[in-house]
Amino acid sequence: MRSFSSSRLATLLILAAAIAALPLIFPSGYYFRVAALVWISALAAIGLNVLMGQAGQVSLGHAGFFGIGAYAVAIGPTHLGIPPWASLLLGAVLAGGLAYLVGRPVLRLRGHYLAIATLGLGVLVSIVLTNESRWTGGPDGMPVPRLILFGWRVSGAETWYWVTGGALLVGTWIALNLTDTPTGRALRALHDSEVAARVAGVDVARYKLAAFVIAAVYASLAGSLLALMNGFITPDQAGFLHSVEFVTMVVVGGLGSVAGAIVGAVVLVTLPQLLTAFQDYQHLMLGLLIMLFMIFLREGIVPSLRALWRLRAAGAAA
């Protein structure tokens, strides 16, 4: 047990050190922006990891919740006169509530029903965002008012780097702590075997629902942060492809590992930026790299490397 919690503390410390140290090597504001995008995606991926890695359920509509959060901070201040920070919270409540309503009946079933239901939900959200152009600006998107906190206008890539980095740190800390609570243990139990968990007295449906709601709230908060940082939002952000991107982050990084979700986000956000050098073959390279990751690091980047590390350490000791 002690090795568990110390490795978790290590994750948090490494992350904090990375966030603090990276600006020292950043030559321009563009790097701050890419890093901030990584932190935002990582936040959503960590949430999704609670659902996928711990509760063993797949959500194919996660960008829908991301979109709800993003449009909450756009529509709230523009049309309803709600301040941005309150809209951010409202979006999270809305996303969580919707996850609860949809998850409650669906999660009583076993198998891939949640995946199908979330797929539908994600598509629905993106259709509503595209068609209700009076509220959302339609397919061309809408501007998002700047976030103002206590008279401080939050803008600029560097500022947002710190804001999103802080949010990610808090999000990681909560997700890591969750692993050690009764909820976390129940989730892991039902990931390993639903039947065994049920026999042990775990209310399977309730814990799955909790994981789903947590994941939705994380995604919504990440969406709000992105919208506030960009100052502009389009319905693509709630689209199916973006949902797939989130799932890929979790799987490539390593199912069930909080650090893995972050690494997955790093890979999927920075690779397209690095691969611009390949121009026409950019998408080809991206697909190829993800395939290679999945073939050679089947458990995901973080768990595979960790296993390799342990193997080496064992070899050196012997």
Binding site: S28, G29, Y30, R33, L37, N230, F232, I233, T234
Partner: peptide, 13 residues
């Protein structure tokens, strides 16, 4: 649009 924004920042900075 999100990628466009990132590339725009890259072009400028």
């Amino acid at each position: 649009a999100n990628k466009a924004r990132t590339f725009a920042t890259r072009l400028v900075e």
